[in-house]
Each structure stands twice: as structure tokens, then as C-alpha cells.
Design a protein around this nucleic acid. Structure first.
Length: 573
RNA sequence: GGACCUGUGGUGCAGCUAGGAGUGCACGCCGGCCUGUCAAGCCGGAGGUCGCGGGUUCAAAUCCCGUCAGGUCCGCCA
């Protein structure tokens, strides 16, 4: 039907007869004898010189036959990749007429997202969306090649799975053949892939769709895509190596440049230096420990187990109103208060402007300036609290004050390792797993599981890119005795464990190999690589924040007959 | 469940603080002119329940209350 693509034509093709198919991107009519038609297909745009009497409208689908020729002297268009040539002697065949589109098919049109989603098929024609989805395809392809190079075997796992009342809210699917019973859509193939390890598929991977019925965000959709992988007879280092290769390959194919090897830091170090478990390493400033400056201070506002500081370069000009707002933000984040110091210079000496300046000793003042490395013109913020709060509050302010567009600057990948095994202690006195209950404790800490559970590190790890959590994984427990100790620590009784995870623990009795794995969000990786702030821009048909699809109208009521067949009656509402 | 931002011809915006006739701008659309344009140009024209409902007022796009939709965030996401 066609001889080639619009965007690939150049001076080398001059003299070639071509037939091109695409959409009318724009036309410039000069009466009945001359019209310029910009023809667009997935590859780009080329100008066709057409007889002006042909009836064409924007977004008509046409086939243009003609001859590639060099444009007349001075008529080249350098802003077009094909701007040195044009298609002459054109005959045009209209393949499909089109109504005027609801918005211009151009990157620079900034249209309401609801309108874009309602007419997503038009939106997808825009070069930006074409580029995003093609980048996504290239990334997935690179990941598959990397996994296959390491001899991982792709295995599909069920979408209709069994409810496991733990973790994220699940989407329920009613069973017609078993009235009153339900399947759920998998939050992830976690348990299935561990069963595959017991089944002897010692290197498994899958580009897997995962579904979670939780509220949507810029980086969260109901359904998202993960590289899901698991391997037997491997260490944590092996897993980090496999995933690093896949991610760096994907980044290289997306950007043309291979990022440097991914650095590692422990969870404790990430908290201490960046106040978060997903540090954005593009932001230069780090938290500092002001314990040395205020360890034995008389100032009550700075007396606490931990005093952390954050230098804001050039922030010394912040107004009182601005500082009040920062203080309010810090309290909203859980701090009791926020101390601030505007650093200035007077007669060659460094001075501090702060409500606390009067009550600080000279030694404290000097130490504050020295430890924070503050220079005149800077602002230093400080939070005194327990270690976790002091770090996380300043870590959040660090991101909010230094925030940069996600695609800007270098891509800074980092492995965060040695996560704590347990997050917190819940209301019933039992610790809450930080990752999931099959995570292997750190061998050095396992003996503290019963005495000091919150101090136990795990063999769990996250991959972080520019402040986005891409994914997480862990070495899994394959020994029944260790699993029993973890369940016990979590307050899960034997009967409970049997009811919830019986099919997994049961499988482990028949010879479970040591195994470890990982899963990371492909939507998020592609979004960052594409420079997009929202994963909706790298998904063909995303849902809105309220979980609706403006194109299809989903979700919708089912006919009463369908509900009856499923044995479902709608109540309330 | 909560906080904040947005909603005005097909699209993007201005108008709202300080109420006075649907007023304006750009693009698109329709018609006309035009043989080298490229975000073509020139002339003319059509197109609106100001998201929806209620209230205040002589008078509401504008002020107040509610509600819906879209977005950002908190909660939530083992």
C-alpha cells in the first residue's frame, strides 16, 4: 500500500517515486492551483505539493503518490527533518475523511487531560505519545534480551488467583461456577514465582501485569507492569547484578548512553544522609548531624536524642513569612518545630540571624556553621527529635525545596540495601513486616528477632532512580524453622499461616531451594527515561485519579441478568 | 476519608480581587481571495445552559453554600 515512511525521506531519495500513507497534519492552500499538505505518519512529517482543488481537511487519512524532489533554493525548512525535500507531482487518494479533531495533534498543545483521555486515539497520534510508547517498547525489549542472556525463562502466572488477606487491597472477581466464591487479581506474582522456584525453574522472569485496588497517583495506576524475576541458588549480589544489567541495558537503549555502575548504600545511611529510603541523589545537599554542636545544649528547642541539619544554599534571603511556612510544613510532617538560621557576614565575621541566635553559646554557633558548612547567604534548618523524625522531616523539606523536573539532570540510580525486617510495631504489639513475611533476616541480626525485633536488618533491597522507588526485592526464607520464627514474631499463628499461605509453606516441605528475587515498575522507569512526571504519559489507556476511563466509560453497572448469574446483589449506595 | 488547585464557544487563555447586557485575545471551524507556503497570509462569518444545583442581590461568569469532574498531595500502596 505504501513504499516507505514520511519522516525517513531525504536528499538521497530525490527522484524516487513514492506512495505515502498518513494523516493530514496541516495544509497551506494558495488557490486552486497550489496547496502544501504536511503528511504525518509514525515516523514524522513530509511536505507534499498538491493541486489546490483537492478537498482535504486536517486528519483526513490519505495516500499520496508522487516524486521526491529537492526543494527550490531558499525554500528549505530547517525545523523539519525532511525539510530539504518535498513530494511533487502528487496525486491524492482520500482513504478516510475525518471530523475536525477536538484538539491539535501537536506536542505544544497543552490540553486538559480529561479531553485527551476521552479522545486518546487522537492524543496517541502526537509525536510525544508516539515517542513515549515506542520508548517503552524498546525498554521492554532490552529487558527481555538482558534476562534471556542470563538464561532466565519466561513463565506466565495466573491472573485469576486466590485471595491472600495481606498487603494491598485486591480486585475481586466473582466465580460463576462457584457461586459466592471469588478469585482476586494478583497484586504481584510473588507467591507464584516462589512456587516456580520449588518447581525447579531456577531462573524465572515475566513482564507481569499487577493489580492493586488502592488510590491512584501520578506514579500509581490500578494496573501496572513489572519486570518480575526470581532465581534459585543465588545470593543478594547475584540478584542486584541481574537487575542492574537489565536496567542499565534499558537505560542505554533509551538514552544512547550507559549509566555508570549503580552505587549502593544501606537503608540506615540513606535515612541518615537523605532522610528517606528513596533518595534523589541529583540534589546536592545532604542532611548533617548536629549532635556534635548541640549534644549538651541548654536550649530546650534543640534538646533531643537527635538533632539534624539541612543547609539550603542561597536560602538566606528567605522571608519571615517563608520561614513561617516552612515551620508549619515541618510540623505537618510530624516535627515539633523547625529551627532556622539565616547566615550572613558582617565585618568579615559569619553571623547568624535566628530567634535562637541569642541563646546559643559561641561554641554552639561555631560548631553549627562548621558542621553544616554554611556560607554567608545560606539558610540552615534544624530539627531536634527522635532520629527517625528528625531525618524524615528534613529529608522531605530537602526534596520540596530542591525539587527538579523528573527528567532533568543525570539519572542517578542507587541500590538501597539492608532494609529493616520490621517497619514499626502495630497497635497489637506485633512488628509489621517492612517488605513481606517471606523476607530473609540478615544473618548477623537473626538472633535478636525475639529480643529486639526492630533492630533486625533484612536481606531486602530497593532500586531508586531520581527519588522514585522503581522496585524492591529480597532474599526469601526457604527454611521452615526460620519462617516459623518470623511468623511467630509477626503474631501469625500456625493455623493462621496455614490458612493464608498454606499452599506456599506446604510446597516448601517438598524441597525448597534457597532463592531470591526482585520486581520493578516498568511504567516508572519509562516515565523517568521519557522525562515524564506521570506514568499516565507512558501508558496507552490509563485511568483517571478516580479510577475511571473517560474513553470507555468504565466502570459501569452490569445488567441485572449478569449479576444474577454471578449471584451478586447490589446493596447500599 | 482529608487538604489544596482548576472548570468561560471545538482548544488554550483573559475577565472574578472591587457584581452592572456573554465582553476580549490566540488557535481551530465554515465561506471567499490568493502559484512557494511551512504555526502561510488577507477579507468575511458561525459557534457559549460561564461544569451543575441552590442562595445573597434590583442585578451573579464574578460573592456565599453544596455538588460533580480533572489534577497534585496526605491517608492507603505487606
Amino acid at each position: 500500500m505504501r513504499t516507505g515512511l514520511c519522516g525517513e525521506l531525504g536528499v538521497d531519495d530525490v527522484g524516487t517515486k513514492v506512495r505515502l500513507c498518513g494523516w493530514v497534519a496541516r495544509r497551506r492552500e494558495h488557490g486552486e492551483h497550489l496547496a502544501f499538505v504536511d503528511l504525518r505518519d509514525r515516523s514524522g512529517i513530509v511536505q507534499c505539493v498538491v493541486d489546490g482543488s483537492v478537498e482535504l481537511r486536517n486528519e483526513y487519512v490519505v495516500a499520496v503518490s508522487g516524486v521526491v524532489r529537492r526543494r527550490p533554493e531558499g525554500m528549505e525548512n530547517p525545523s523539519l527533518l525532511t525539510g530539504e525535500v518535498e513530494i511533487g507531482d502528487c496525486t491524492v487518494e482520500v482513504l478516510a475523511a475525518a471530523e475536525p479533531p477536538p484538539f491539535h495533534v501537536e506536542d505544544r498543545t497543552d490540553v486538559d487531560e480529561a479531553v485527551r483521555l476521552r479522545h486518546r486515539y487522537v492524543d496517541l497520534r502526537r509525536p510525544r505519545m508516539q515517542a513515549n510508547l515506542r520508548l517503552r517498547a524498546a525498554v521492554v525489549s532490552a529487558i527481555r534480551r538482558a534476562m534471556e542472556r542470563e538464561e532466565f525463562c519466561e513463565v506466565e502466572t495466573p491472573l485469576l488467583w486466590s485471595p491472600t488477606p495481606e498487603g494491598a487491597r485486591e480486585f475481586a472477581v466473582p466465580s460463576r461456577l462457584h457461586r459466592g466464591d471469588f478469585y482476586v487479581l494478583p497484586q504481584s506474582p510473588q507467591i507464584a514465582k516462589q512456587l516456580l522456584m520449588v518447581g525447579g525453574f531456577d531462573r524465572y522472569y515475566q513482564i507481569a501485569r499487577c493489580l492493586r485496588d488502592e488510590d491512584l497517583r501520578a506514579d500509581r495506576q490500578f494496573e501496572f507492569t513489572q519486570l518480575d524475576m526470581e532465581a534459585s541458588f543465588v545470593t543478594q549480589d547475584d540478584v542486584l547484578g541481574f537487575v542492574s544489567e537489565a536496567v542499565l541495558d534499558a537505560a542505554q537503549c533509551a538514552t544512547g548512553e550507559r549509566p555508570p555502575p549503580i552505587e549502593r548504600m544501606t537503608w540506615a545511611e540513606a535515612l541518615d544522609r537523605y532522610g528517606t529510603d528513596k533518595p534523589d541523589l541529583r540534589i546536592e545537599t545532604e542532611l548533617v548531624d548536629l549532635g556534635e554542636a548541640f549534644g549538651s545544649t541548654e536550649v530546650r528547642a534543640l534538646s533531643a536524642p537527635s538533632v539534624k541539619g539541612l543547609r539550603i544554599p542561597g536560602g538566606g534571603g528567605t522571608s519571615r513569612a517563608g520561614l513561617d511556612a516552612l515551620g508549619e510544613r515541618a510540623r505537618a510532617l510530624g516535627a515539633k518545630g523547625l529551627a532556622w538560621f539565616r547566615v550572613a557576614e558582617s565585618d568579615g565575621a559569619t553571623t547568624l540571624d535566628s530567634p535562637l541566635a541569642r541563646v546559643l553559646s559561641d561554641a554552639e554557633r561555631d560548631a553549627l556553621v562548621r558542621v553544616s558548612a554554611a556560607a554567608p547567604g545560606d539558610l540552615v534548618l534544624a530539627v531536634a527529635d527522635d532520629h527517625r523524625t528528625a531525618c524524615t522531616v528534613l529529608g522531605q523539606l530537602r526534596v520540596e525545596l530542591g525539587a527538579r523536573p523528573v527528567g532533568e539532570g543525570p539519572h542517578r540510580y542507587v541500590w538501597v540495601v539492608e532494609f529493616p525486617l520490621f517497619e514499626t510495631v502495630s497497635a497489637d504489639g506485633h512488628p509489621v513486616p517492612a517488605h513481606h513475611p517471606f523476607t530473609m533476616p540478615h544473618p548477623e541480626d537473626i538472633d535478636r528477632m525475639e529480643t529486639d525485633p526492630l533492630s533486625v536488618r533484612s536481606q531486602a533491597y530497593d532500586l531508586v532512580l531520581n527519588g522514585w522507588e522503581l522496585g524492591s526485592g529480597s532474599v526469601r526464607i526457604h527454611r521452615a524453622d526460620i519462617q516459623a520464627r518470623v511468623f511467630k514474631a509477626l503474631g501469625i499463628s500456625d493455623e493462621d499461616a496455614e490458612a493464608r499461605f498454606g499452599f506456599l509453606t506446604g510446597a516448601f516441605r517438598f524441597g525448597a531451594p534457597p532463592h531470591a528475587g526482585f520486581a520493578f515498575g516498568i511504567d516508572r522507569l519509562v516515565a523517568v527515561l521519557a522525562g515524564e512526571e506521570s506514568i499516565r504519559e507512558v501508558i496507552a489507556f490509563p485511568k483517571t485519579q478516580s479510577g475511571a476511563d473517560p474513553l470507555t466509560g468504565a466502570p459501569k453497572p452490569l445488567p441485572a441478568s449478569s449479576l444474577a448469574e454471578l449471584g451478586i446483589r447490589i446493596v447500599g449506595g
